[in-house]
């Protein structure tokens, strides 16, 4: 059986898949890869089914020793990956012979990298998912982030050495030197904020705060936008829900979000923008832009269609090398 050993600890390395669904009524957080589309692509590039357990890395991403031959793919954030000290390509399958050391040089762009291995990580499912639930301290690898010395088992070693060399990416990483535009829909409590305050909100330039994590982005602004809203009782929240806290702070929920929240849900970021949210690194500037639901649904459909086609194409390509 193959194995990957963690040599150097990363900031936050966890086992993730597409998330844990059907458990929200028990208060179980969805978890899963924050950048789902990049996670799906990492698996397709190595010929796996989309929803196969992989690693999610944040910078500093640590280093990994391969105790067996493996075919891997790295997608999402570009942390300048290296194998045995030599740069390797993102977004394409790579053959790593037994004894290879994978490390990451510096965070070039984006916030999260996905590392998929042909055949997948051998991680038992908890409530139908291999995703790590950090708040419940369960799922994934021992319910926690990986530490030096952890040896993650692979379903099987892969010996394929001749691989496709074309690089394929499905999302553009946000440029941290520019102001990013995140398109959004009105949230259920949008009407509670007056028109003038909404105008301010949509003009405002936010920065992604350093305390942001897998639970959510904490937004910073040069002059905080304080809007008075009445207290409300808890109701459901989603990935991409933009909440206004009583102290004037804004948060955008990500994969580890609780199932319910008691703060007004002013905006909702639609699915096609989730990957962008996932890759906003700390300090990046952005602003919101209002979208209409019909246009957003069309953009979702287009993204889902195109990315699915891309993945089917790269999966077929690597599978043709296997046969």
């Amino acid at each position: 059986m193959g194995m990957i050993e963690v040599i150097k600890k990363g900031l936050l390395t966890t086992v993730q898949d597409a998330g844990r669904f059907g458990q929200a009524a028990r208060g179980i957080h969805p978890c899963g890869a924050v950048d789902r589309e990049s996670f799906f692509l990492s698996n397709a590039l190595v010929g796996n089914d989309d929803n196969t357990a992989a690693l999610e890395l944040h910078f500093p991403a640590g280093s990994f020793l391969f105790h067996s031959d493996a075919v891997i793919a790295l997608t999402g954030a570009d942390f300048q990956p290296q194998v045995n000290g030599s740069p390797v390509q993102m977004n394409q399958p790579l053959f790593l012979p037994k004894g290879s050391l994978l490390s990451f040089e510096r965070p070039n762009r984006g916030a999260r990298t996905y590392l998929a291995v042909m055949g997948g990580l051998d991680i038992p499912a908890w409530l139908g998912s291999a995703s790590t639930d950090l708040s419940a301290k369960t799922g994934g690898w021992k319910g926690r982030a990986l530490q030096p010395g952890d040896c993650i088992p692979l379903h099987r070693p892969s010996r394929l050495q001749k691989l496709p060399t074309e690089s394929t990416s499905t999302n553009e990483l946000p440029d941290p030197t520019e102001t990013i535009v995140v398109e959004c829909l009105a949230g259920p409590e949008y009407e509670r904020v007056g028109a003038a305050d909404i105008d301010h909100l949509l003009e405002k330039q936010f920065q992604v705060g350093r305390e942001s994590d897998r639970m959510g982005l904490r937004l910073r602004a040069a002059d905080p936008l304080l809007i008075q809203t009445n207290p409300m009782i808890s109701s459901a929240v989603l990935f991409g829900t933009v909440q206004l806290l009583p102290n004037g702070e804004w948060i955008v929920l990500l994969a580890d979000h609780p199932t319910t929240g008691g703060y007004p849900r002013i905006l909702q970021v639609p699915y096609y923008e989730w990957g962008k949210l996932a890759q906003l690194s700390a300090g990046t500037s952005f602003r919101f832009q209002r979208m209409e639901l019909v246009a957003a649904m069309e953009k979702n459909a287009q993204l889902v269609r195109e990315n699915r086609l891309t993945r089917d194409r790269v999966r077929q390509r690597i599978q043709s090398y296997l046969s």
Partner: peptide, 16 residues
């Protein structure tokens, strides 16, 4: 993909 009951509403979450 999920049913989220809360105080006075039921929220249905769908697979995008």
């Amino acid at each position: 993909s999920d049913i989220i009951p809360s105080y006075n509403r039921v929220t249905l979450r769908f697979d995008p």
